[in-house]
Write a protein that binds this DNA or RNA. Structure first.
Length: 214
DNA sequence: ACAAAGGCTCGACGCCATCC
DNA sequence: GGATGGCGTCGAGCCTTTGT
């Protein structure tokens, strides 16, 4: 999907991208070969070509920073196929909603394996762990998880591509919070966690700190 | 060759939704 | 309850097209 994308190129908006696609210019390679068919000439055409050449260069090297700074946030979902081999699905638990509240746990799924980082056990390993990934996927992470991580872990690398599923799901007609979306997609939780919400994460953390193993 | 019109991008603004 | 990005809207500014 990324190789079909032109929206990250300065001077190209949704209209022009759509026009390219309608004219059978579907990939970067198509553009470099066939753009003269479209009546794009002169400096504009050259600038676009230069940006496509850059895009190919950076994609071949896995330079996620190039795309993180150029692809509009609402279109970052398009990079998933190209960067799925370096993805972290991320969720944090905290003691409250204010960024100065405490992070109690961070969970990461890398596509194969779930890794859990717990306060007072191994949470300090999270900075190193995060630096391994090119792409982060969250739900509402742009407003919640990432600001928390930035506030509490000054050395964490957090310049990755970031797909916040809240917004693409909204466009597909799914909204109302993660729990509700899971329900409407028929995603079942385990018996132990079925009826728990975010506030239970706070309560259970304090119970755990008071000695409850359960 | 020049001017006007039209198309498109892009930034600003205010409102809204979601996380524990 | 605070932070943040997306959304819709608007208008400035640039570029291309069209008309004379």
């Amino acid at each position: 999907m990324l190789k079909n994308t032109f929206i990250h190129i300065p001077g190209i908006g949704y209209k022009t991208e759509s026009k390219l696609w309608k004219n059978r210019i579907l990939t970067w390679e198509d553009y470099l070969r066939d753009s003269h068919r479209l009546g794009l000439f002169g400096r504009r055409k050259d600038k676009i070509e230069a940006c496509i050449t850059d895009s190919r260069y950076h994609l071949a090297r896995g330079n996620y920073q190039f795309f993180a700074s150029s692809v509009p946030k609402r279109e970052v979902w398009r990079v998933y196929p190209e960067f799925r081999n370096s993805v972290a699905f991320l969720d944090i638990e905290t003691t409250g909603l204010d960024v100065s509240d405490i992070i109690t746990m961070v969970g990461i799924y890398d596509g194969n394996q779930v890794k859990t980082f717990i306060r007072e056990i191994n949470l300090d390993e999270i900075e190193n762990e995060l630096s391994k990934y090119s792409l982060l996927v969250t739900y509402n992470g742009a407003c919640f998880d990432l600001p928390f991580l930035r506030y509490h872990f000054h050395n964490a690398v957090l310049d990755q591509l970031h797909i916040d599923l809240r917004y693409p799901l909204k466009r597909l007609g799914y909204s109302g919070g993660l729990k509700q979306i899971e329900h409407s997609l028929n995603i079942q939780r385990t018996e132990e966690t079925r009826n728990l919400d975010g506030f239970d994460a706070v309560r259970l953390w304090y119970e755990y700190q008071s000695g409850s193993k359960e």
